[in-house]
Structure formats: C-alpha cells, structure tokens
Design a protein around this nucleic acid. Structure first.
Lengths: 237, 237
DNA sequence: AATATTTTTTGAACTCGTTCAAAAAAGTTC
DNA sequence: GAACTTTTTTGAACGAGTTCAAAAAATATT
C-alpha cells in the first residue's frame, strides 16, 4: 500500500494499446464486480496479459483507481454543464450540481467506501490533497468556479473568491455522507442536500451583510490556512 | 480487510496472559516501528507466540488497532481533566482540550494517516461511526459534554444539547488537519486551533442571538440528520 | 541485414493478512 | 486419577498485492 512508483510512460504503439486495454478492462471490472473482486490477477487474466505486465504500466492497484476517479469526474462535469446553462441563481445551480453528483456516483456506492479509504491516507497518491490527484481536484474546483461565476447575487469579493473552494469542500462532505448512507434510494442524502443548499444560501446572504465583515474576514483567513496546507501537501508527494 | 469476526473472549488465566502479552507487544511495536513494519507475524514472533495464536485472540490486525485508539483516548482524557478543573470559560476549556489532544497524538503522527485510512471505510470496524468503535466514540463525546457542562455562558438549550457532538465533530476535523500537517512542531495545527476556537466562540455567541433562531433551528436539524445516519450505521455493523 | 539497445512481457517468488484442521494443554466431571 | 470437554496453540496453507530477473519482441544504429 506504500508504492508511489510512477506508472511507466509507454514508448511504443504496442505498449500504448496494452496499457489502454488493461485500463479499460480494469474500469469495467471495477464497475461490474466491485473493488474486492477486481484483483490484479483477474484484470490481467481478463485482459489476456501477464500479471507483471499490468504492473509494468500501472505501478499499483491504486493507480488504476485514480483513473476511475477521473472518469467519474468527467461524467459529472458533462452532466452538470446543461444545468448551469439553464439555471441562473446560485441556489438552483448548486442544488442541481449536487444532485447530479450523487446520481453520477450512485452506481459505485458499494465500493466507494474502499476508494475513499485509500484516499484518506496522506501518503497515498489517491488522497484528494496529494500531488497525484491535483489535476482532478483542480478540475473539480473549476466546476464550482463556473457555478459561482455570472451569478448576480451580491456577494463581497473576499467571499466570492473563496466560495468555489468552499463549495468544493462542502461537496466532499456530502459525498462522505453519501458513502455512509444506506437509506432507500439514498433518500437521506438527497434530503441533506436540499437542506444544506437552503442553509448555505441563507448563510451566504448572512455572511454578505456588512455587519458580518469581521467574522467573515476571520473565517476566510482560516480557509486560507487550509489552502496553504494543501499546496504544502502537494509538494511533499 | 473484511473481517468483522469478533475477538474471542478468554476463558482461562493462561489465555488472559497471552492476550495481554500480544496486545502490549503490538502497542509497543506500533509505537516504535509504525504501522507497516508491525506485521502480525512480527508481533507474534516478538511475543514468542504462533501467528495463529495471535489471530485466536484478535480477529484481525484492525482489532489490535482499535485497542490503540482506546489507549490514546484514555491518555487524552487523563490529560484533560485537570484543565477542565482549572478553566471555567468554554473558550479556555476548548482551547486547552484541543491542544492536549494534539500533544497526546503527536508521537503517532507518522502512522496516524494509516489509522485514519482504515477508519474511513464504512465497512471497517474502525470507522468512528461504526458499531465497534461506539464505546470509544461515546467516551470521546462525553469529554465534550463535561466541557460544555457548568459553563455559565448564555446558550439556548437546543444548541447546548447538540454542542458536545458538534465540538466532537470539530475536533475530528482538527485531527484530520493535523494528520496532513507537516509543518515544524505542527505549528500550523496549533495556529488553526487558536483561530478556530476563537471563531467558534464568536459563532456560538452569534448563534445564541434570538434573531438567529430560525437559522439556528435549521442548522440543528441538519445535525440531527447526521446523528440519525450514525445510529443507522451502528446497527448495520 | 546484422547488431545493439530499448521496451514489453513473462513467470516465479516474496510478503503479508487471514483461515483452519488438528495437536497440545488446561480444566471439568465422575 | 481416568475419561471427557473446552480452551489454547500450532503450523501449514491460501489469496492478494507487489517485485524482479530474465526472455521475447520491437526499435534504433551502423
């Protein structure tokens, strides 16, 4: 579980094909059989390739999972774009994006826990704050930037600047809740989204009130602290 | 990593001794060599006992780690009691308790990540919301109950009732930050604690304002949602 | 085309967590 | 104290992730 060996870049057409084959096989198996059943041996066998060969292209099972993250984010992004077109208020946009996130994630509920398990280790390349997942994370925050942009709500600039990142954090929290949610149809998570989006909208109004300026400044300074930690993390990995 | 087999209760003096020996050996090795190096084989060998025997008393490596959690909480609790005696304001108490938490945790920084990694899997018995860790968690929340009790600050009852749990959640957040913090002397975490405690104190005052009642009610309803999820989790495991 | 170099691929081996049947030891019953 | 039951202990085995030296195939060089 330690391996941070980087996945070998391919130098050959043949290699390219093999790598792609292994990846697509892995994604499919992860989807259909879950994490535990998708052993490296099974992937290799299914792809008609030796075990060692799979390791030649993907330094560890984790690296294969990384690719899976990426796929999920792509799907969510594609699903979200039309909603951002259609809705204009921040609240409506956020609500739509969050619901779509859960819908996108839903097929993988069973083994999402395992994913987030490996992702929680600060030394894991899968940790959402680590260097390896920086691209996916950046893209993910970018989605919330789009969401905040061109919203006419009166939001002070200091808050507006941090809002995308704050919403990203919020979204991670919801995903965490969803992982633990075993209610029918994930009703609980959807309810939580409804309530939190509502609350967030109110809190943003509140925080935008000039009287709140001191508290707001103080809170935003904390967020800055968080971000500093991230960049430091990214360098370490 | 699946095993939820319960650890066998011992029925014999000899067994009791063996179990204790294995546990203390494991704790020592975890402390001195970290998580990865502390293999079940190494523990067994060091304790002068067969591998199978270790598994007879502890259903999995995770069970051994659970014991480790427990130890840490005990240490923190003992360190905190005098501080609660001495300080009377909520702010001062919280500050002291949080700092002591980090001090208690500090020797284990290196492999804390791995601990929290396994703890993040909803199916793991180590997950802080799962049934297996309920005792430790309850004790942990209890500490914050004591902290809130006998505080003369004017806090509405609805908030006061949820405050211990909220502070526990907050404390988990700080621990998460600490895990990722590689600054010298963990300066960042301590700074964060100073700032957040300050902010929390102000937020509690704010939330206690009668004008805030509707927002507060709404927010507390969310917390209730969270707790519901927990009890449901606990039943599932 | 022959040779040298690089890349891909293999298969065996190693480690570690975990399981299990059966041997050894301890405790119980008569 | 002998026969039994229960508990403890062992050691071998399995499955999974990972590593690595060396064979095979592809590519580059002369």
């Amino acid at each position: 579980m330690k391996s941070s060996k980087k996945t070998n870049t391919t130098k050959t057409v043949k290699g390219e094909q093999t790598k792609a084959l292994i990846l697509s096989t892995a994604l499919e198996m992860l989807h259909e059989r879950g994490y535990e059943a998708t052993t490296m041996r099974a992937i290799a066998e299914q792809a008609g390739v030796s075990l060692g060969n799979a390791y030649h292209y993907f330094g560890s099972k984790d690296h294969l999972i990384q690719a899976f993250y990426h796929r999920i984010h792509e799907d969510h992004l594609q699903a979200s774009l039309p909603a951002l077109e259609k809705e204009s208020s921040l609240k409506a946009r956020l609500l739509a994006v969050m619901r779509l996130k859960i819908e996108t994630l839903e097929p993988y509920h069973e083994f999402a826990g395992v994913l987030f398990q490996t992702a929680a280790d600060p030394h894991s390349p899968l940790n959402p704050f680590a260097h390896a997942s920086a691209p996916v994370r950046r893209d993910s925050v970018k989605l919330f930037e789009q969401l905040v942009e061109q919203t006419k709500a009166r939001i002070p600039n200091d808050l507006r600047a941090e809002l995308p990142y704050l919403l990203w954090l919020y979204h991670m929290g919801i995903v965490l809740f969803w992982i633990h949610d075993s209610s029918r149809q994930r009703a609980r998570t959807y309810r939580l989204i409804d309530q939190t989006v509502d609350l967030l909208d109110k809190l943003i109004s509140l925080a935008s009130n000039p009287l709140m300026r001191p508290v707001r400044k103080r809170a935003l300074k904390l967020v800055e602290e968080l971000r500093d930690l991230e960049t430091e993390e990214a360098q370490a990995n």
